[in-house]
């Protein structure tokens, strides 16, 4: 965390920085033994943005509504496909999503791998195509596995490759979270979502979100 803050501070000095809150809700329901339906709602609200005249100011940014079907493959894998609608200002963006996920169980930890391709279309911008890979590690803070009413720690690292207007850019994300398993169907997570965009080019963008996730299984 110290390293993250130091890096952020160093980078902030040269590039842009914004920060806000990012609440997310994921509701999943089992359609059949192998198929589940996952719906999501996410909003972004800014409090700090040093590219604005008024750096400190509340601003509602966007809302995402997503819906994915997830087909289980084997004991650990799943193929997911779906659609996301983004409401940003006066515009609506459409995003098609294809994912492959793999969750590995070890003695005390669970490792989740997520491979994603998505295509975003909107009237105000050229189509954007992305390749993403995320690794997430989860471990209980007590005992050998997470049981209801127990806390856990989760850290994710994601790499994104973006293609838009014949340009390729890279982004990385680090997401440390503390989670609480309310019961077998409910868990909440609170943590940071740090995003470093334009990683290998000039004019890097830093976003630091306070993220609150709620996962509910129907």
């Amino acid at each position: 965390m110290f390293l993250l803050l130091m890096t952020t501070k160093y980078v902030i000095a040269q590039t842009s920085f914004s920060s806000g809150i990012l609440p997310r809700v994921r509701i999943s329901t089992k359609v059949s033994e192998k198929l589940k339906w996952v719906n999501g709602l996410e909003t972004r609200q800014l409090f700090i943005d040093d590219t604005r005249e008024e750096t400190l100011k509340y601003e509602y940014v966007l809302t995402d509504i997503s819906s994915l079907l997830s087909l289980k493959i084997g004991a650990y894998g799943a193929i997911n496909g779906g659609y996301l609608l983004r409401f940003e200002g006066d515009y609506i963006f459409h995003r098609a999503i294809q994912q492959f996920t793999l969750v590995q169980n070890y003695d005390r930890i669970r490792l989740g791998h997520r491979f994603v391709t998505d295509q975003t279309f909107g009237r105000s911008e050229s189509p954007e195509f992305r390749l993403r890979y995320r690794i997430a590690l989860e471990r209980p803070l007590s005992g050998n596995k997470v049981d209801p009413k127990e806390l856990y720690f989760k850290i994710s690292n994601e790499y994104l490759m973006k293609f838009q207007n014949s340009e390729t850019t890279f982004e990385t994300r680090i997401l440390p979270f503390i989670g609480y398993e309310i019961n077998k169907k409910n868990k909440v997570e609170l943590g940071l979502d740090y995003r470093l965009d334009n990683l290998l080019s000039s004019g890097q963008e830093n976003d630091l979100w306070l993220s609150i996730n709620w996962y509910y299984t129907l």
């Binding site: 994921r26 999943s28 996952v38 999501g40 994915l68 997830s70 799943a78 997911n80 994912q99 996920t101 969750v103 169980n105 669970r110 490792l111 989740g112 997520r114 997430a136 989860e138 596995k145 997470v146 989760k154 989670g179 398993e181 077998k184 169907k185 868990k187 997570e189 996730n213 996962y215 299984t217």
Partner: peptide, 10 residues
Amino acid sequence: KQRPTDNLEF
């Protein structure tokens, strides 16, 4: 029974 993996997948 596996715990839901939604928080590692989505």
